[in-house]
């Protein structure tokens, strides 16, 4: 980042920001389209989330009588944290906007900051349902965090580096399948998808993330929805790059491959949601532990692979 800034840097910055902020709301659209296609419905337009965001941004806000200004600050901080985390994730050979040794930990902890801010805002309302959602979110995150750290460890061992740009450049090697399965499960859990959470349910009792934002409306809700889509894109990009040797592709082919990869992940999420029901909450820890174990096996494979 040091030194003078050129026009190229500016263009690079704009392209990165555009990728993360403008492309992200497309993902939920794709997932919904896959679900409706499997179910034989027409379904909402692929761009539905963009329309929703535009509509919400113009609306006025209803706020609980109990809530403090932190109820609005929570979504803002969470959005900054998620977008900040995204800026650390490389986009193929284009690299990340910001990279240094140990940035992988900053990314994980920024996602944690987003969780803290969202849970704090949820608790502002004094609602039992939102308390329930916040409690579930912060509890299941403990296992998800362990799985994420194990996944990152396996990438570090595989490449011998501790920065996301170099960790994600080659493919995950022999452990790629294990890592992909583990990361995909974490993706589903962290982004409140079936089988952990049901984004379409109408019963507050069965929700995790959605129940935390029940009381939000207008622009803060728009910020929350947009942040959630950026987070989904972040996990998809991470998954694609962990498996494919993105850093070794030519700069012209890479964006296309990345796009196809992210599209595949979104279709995968849609298919999972179409064919699987939400698990009972007792089985959520079990599934997350499985994801953790998959990542641990990926660590061991990476360790052996390097020694051989």
């Amino acid at each position: 980042m040091a030194g003078g800034y050129t026009v190229n840097d500016l263009i690079r910055l704009l392209l990165h920001v555009a990728w993360w902020l403008l492309l992200a709301p497309l993902l939920p659209g794709i997932i919904n389209r896959v679900k409706s296609w499997v179910a034989g419905r027409r379904g909402p337009p692929i761009l539905q989330l963009y329309f929703d965001l535009a509509r919400l941004w113009k609306k006025s806000v209803v706020m609980s009588t109990l809530a403090s200004p932190a109820f609005i600050a929570g979504p803002a901080v969470a959005w900054v944290a998620v977008v900040g985390a995204a800026m650390l994730v490389p986009l193929g050979p284009a690299g990340a906007l910001l990279h240094f040794r140990g940035d992988v930990l900053l990314m994980l902890y920024l996602l944690a900051l987003a969780r803290f801010a969202t849970a704090w805002a949820a608790m502002e309302t004094g609602s039992a349902f939102e308390g329930m959602g916040a409690a579930r979110e912060v509890s299941y995150a403990i296992l998800a965090e362990a799985a994420m750290v194990a996944a990152m460890l396996s990438l570090s061992i595989e490449t011998g580096t501790v920065s996301l740009t170099t960790m994600l450049a080659p493919s995950a090697g022999a452990g790629a399948v294990l890592l992909a399965a583990g990361l995909f499960t974490v993706l589903l859990a962290e982004n409140c998808r079936v089988p952990f959470d049901d984004p379409n349910t109408h019963l507050e009792l069965t929700m995790i993330h959605e129940v935390m934002v029940l009381d939000h409306s207008g622009p803060p809700l728009a910020v929350i929805l947009h942040g959630a889509s950026v987070k989904l894109l972040l996990f998809s990009v991470l998954l694609v790059q962990a498996v494919l040797p993105m850093g070794e592709l030519s700069p012209t082919a890479a964006p296309g491959v990345l796009l196809v990869g992210v599209f595949t992940v979104a279709v995968g999420v849609g298919l999972v949601e179409s064919f699987l029901a939400r698990f009972s909450f007792r089985r959520v820890p079990l599934l997350l532990t499985t994801a953790f174990l998959l990542c641990i096996f990926a660590v061991l494979v990476a360790w052996k692979g390097g020694a051989a």
Binding site: W57, K58, S60, S64, T65, P69, I72, V77
Partner: peptide, 23 residues
């Protein structure tokens, strides 16, 4: 900055206080 912007946006769009949604 994001907090202030969002607070400002909420204020200009209009803010109503209501009971917490409890199902």
């Amino acid at each position: 900055a994001a907090t202030f912007l969002l607070l400002h946006k909420v204020r200009t769009n209009g803010l109503r206080r209501g009971l917490t949604w409890d199902c």
